[in-house]
């Protein structure tokens, strides 16, 4: 029994990191921009949170600082890709290299140091008493509730139930038509891309403030890329992202539990599980959907810069 509870608790905690980053990427891709810099943004967020909590021992301040740093780097990325219309793949890779490099350089001073302040579990009365599920879902830290309930519901509502959300999606599907209808395409893209980047950095802060409470080089370990893959797997829908993140978290948790219980598999091999799992989840559904002749619909203008002046 408690092995399942432990597995689920870790899955929720690990999945939350992915969910937060992937929610940011959903916002970004829905307006038509691929941000491959999530990995770098997460590293920046993670190191910012650690650095800030050393002088101000309050996790919320650390988290907010990470969001701010993410917003700033997101604005640089958005300026390059949306306003200057540079190649999104290249700018994303550049952001990943810049972010991981910078974070490792800055973070050398804090390497191995435990976080001075972390998010503590908030126990939801009554619900946390549910056997098995209670401890896993209702006695987690505040960030878990934020990423699994508040944010996805808010984003879903914004994107699918409001006029603003309709405009947002129009910008990602057909920027030319959106522009003709008077929607500010570039402003919309710029701010949502920046906002998405802020959430990615927030995911990094989640990592160091609630999951692995210390900084070490390479701590992000491809989670940013997994988050990008997760968005495709979740077919660009915020509610699906949360479910998928839980599934991906479960795979990660399996590796941790395996290590903790001394399964006769080397830790390095167990560590491959998230990447191999992601690989399966990104390839297999496409095969199945092709059989059913029902390919997942990415936003039609995804990855394409918008030129009003060149037709």
């Amino acid at each position: 029994m408690d092995i399942i509870t432990g597995l689920l608790t870790t899955a929720v905690l690990a999945g939350g990191v992915l969910a937060l980053a992937a929610l940011g990427e959903v916002i970004c891709q829905r307006v038509g921009v691929v941000n491959l810099g999530v990995e770098g943004l997460m590293a920046l967020g993670a190191v910012t949170a650690i650095a800030v909590t050393i002088s101000v021992p309050n996790p919320s301040v650390g988290f907010a600082a990470a969001l701010l740093v993410g917003l700033c780097f997101g604005m640089v990325f958005a300026m390059a890709t949306v306003l200057f219309r540079a190649n999104q793949v290249l700018c994303g890779l550049a952001l990943t290299l810049m972010g991981t490099g910078l974070a490792a350089t800055v973070g050398r001073a804090f390497s191995g140091m435990p976080a001075k302040a972390t998010f503590q579990p908030v126990i939801v009365p009554y619900l946390s008493d549910i056997p098995i599920l209670g401890p896993a879902f209702f006695s987690q830290n505040i960030l878990v509730y934020l990423t699994f309930i508040i944010l996805p519901v808010a984003i879903h509502y914004l994107m699918f139930k409001t006029r603003h959300g309709l405009n947002m999606r129009a910008v990602g599907e057909n920027p030319g038509a959106a522009d003709a209808a008077g929607i500010p395409v570039l402003a919309m893209r710029f701010w949502y891309v920046s906002l998405g980047a802020a959430l990615a950095a927030g995911a990094g802060a989640y990592l160091t403030l609630a999951f692995v409470p210390s900084w070490s080089d390479g701590i992000v370990a491809g989670r940013g890329w997994i988050a990008v893959a997760l968005v495709i797997f979740a077919r660009y829908r915020p509610m699906n992202v949360v479910m998928a993140a839980l599934l991906f978290g479960l795979i990660t948790a399996l590796g941790y539990v395996g290590q903790a219980r001394n399964w006769p598999v080397a830790p390095a091999l167990l560590g491959m599980l998230p990447y191999l799992g992601t690989l399966c989840f990104i390839i297999v559904p496409v095969i199945v959907l092709r059989r059913m002749r029902q390919l997942p619909a990415a936003p039609a203008a995804l990855g394409l810069p918008y030129f009003r002046d060149v037709r």
């Binding site: 390059a80 200057f84 290249l90 700018c91 550049a94 952001l95 990943t96 810049m98 490099g101 350089t105």
Partner: peptide, 21 residues
């Protein structure tokens, strides 16, 4: 550190991407 160099190469890539456009 060599990670500072990684950051620098990222900067090269970013500027090249913008310049290419």
């Amino acid at each position: 550190t060599t990670s500072a160099i990684v950051a620098l190469t990222g900067l090269v890539l970013l500027f090249t991407a913008i310049g290419d456009e």
